Amino acid sequence: MVRVTVPATTANIGPGFDTLGLALNMYNVYNFEETELGLIIEGCPDEYNNEDNLIYKSFVIAAKEMGKEVKGLKISMNTEIPVSRGLGSSSACIVGGVYGANELLHGGLSKDELFRIAVKIEGHPDNIAPAVYGGLTASIVEDDKTYCMKYNLSEKLKFCALIPDFETSTCEARKLLPQDVTFKDAVFNISRTAVLLKAMEEGNFEVISVSLKDKLHQKYRKTLIHQYDEVKKICIENKSDAFFISGSGPTLMNIIQNPEFTNRIKVSIMNLEHNWIVKYLEADKYGVTVEQI
């Protein structure tokens, strides 16, 4: 049996739209076993217990890339990453399936090769990159080839995720975005992305807070997040060091220095219309791991 463990991820990180990603220490664990025939899936809702399951589909695609045949497969899972909350649940499924196929079927592919297969399935690299490589990543696509760089991240940086009891669709969130942006807004984001990466490396919270500002996506996507303004106000009043929408939402992420922020915020959001899970997180440095059980 092969076990694949994949971290949660947060993408965009303010100005780094479709480019930046960060791995977090919340995990999905997938176990893969070969069987004689058929498909068995355990540990997920019934609607995903079929051949349309994203883990299985990714496994099959990776197997075909390696020239391998999938006869029978059992997948069992233990998942911490919530679905459709902007924390990379679909990327975790894809990376899990791709890595599971490579290990179980003895594909012998490198990490970079597996990364590119996973990006091809997902369609964009911002969540896939940190799920594979861990830490803070920046990715680009050129002529259908994906490139990724990993950045150092200060040990000072801790994270507090506010995860609501409602979902948002990445597809619907993308429909809100404009087809064209002004030159001024493009420069605004490019400059802040460059500064943000160095500030996160050094742990400069003042510069992080300023450089997290964005004009390309968050002002549109926040309209899908119930009580966004109220939640942001509560975070600021409780001395959040920096605040941004995780991926396309609805999870809202705080970068913090003091873990005590997590306890304060739990009390402050109790009376909101929706229930919000408050989760203290740290960066995952290593990305996906694979082991034989």
Rank of each mutant, 00 (worst) to 15 (best):
E80M: 14
G123C: 00
A62C: 06
I117E: 05
I117M: 07
N152P: 15
Y99I: 14
N102C: 05
C93V: 04
V119F: 00
K57Y: 07
E103M: 09
I75L: 04
S110A: 06
K145R: 14
A63I: 06
S91A: 15
G67I: 15
P82K: 01
G108I: 01
G96V: 06
V141M: 06
S110P: 00
L73S: 12
V141P: 00
C160G: 08
L87A: 10
P82Q: 06
A138M: 08
E113T: 05
V141I: 15
Y151C: 12
D143E: 13
V95G: 09
G134H: 09
N78F: 15
H106I: 13
G96I: 00
M66D: 12
S110F: 10
I94L: 11
I117D: 01
I94G: 00
S90G: 12
G72S: 01
E69P: 01
I61M: 13
A92D: 09
V60Q: 00
C148H: 10
D143C: 10
S110V: 08
F59Y: 08
I61S: 11
G97W: 04
F115A: 02
Y151T: 02
S91F: 08
I117T: 10
D143S: 10
S76Q: 09
G107V: 05
D143Q: 15
E65P: 04
I117V: 10
E122T: 03
D112P: 02
K156T: 05
S58T: 03
S84L: 08
P125W: 07
V132Q: 01
S139Q: 03
E80K: 14
K120C: 10
M77H: 03
E80A: 09
S58V: 08
G100L: 07
S76N: 07
A62L: 06
G67T: 13
P130H: 04
V119S: 04
G86L: 05
V141T: 13
R85P: 05
P130E: 01
G96N: 07
I61H: 09
M149E: 11
G107I: 08
V70C: 08
E80V: 01
G108R: 04
V95L: 10
M77D: 12
L157I: 09
A129S: 09
C93T: 00
G123A: 01
E142H: 12
I128V: 15
K145D: 15
L153T: 10
E122Y: 00
A118S: 12
I121V: 11
V141G: 09
I61T: 14
L104I: 09
M149I: 15
L136F: 02
A62I: 14
H106E: 15
L109E: 03
K120E: 14
G96P: 02
P82L: 01
L157W: 02
P125V: 09
S90T: 03
N152S: 12
S58A: 12
D144E: 15
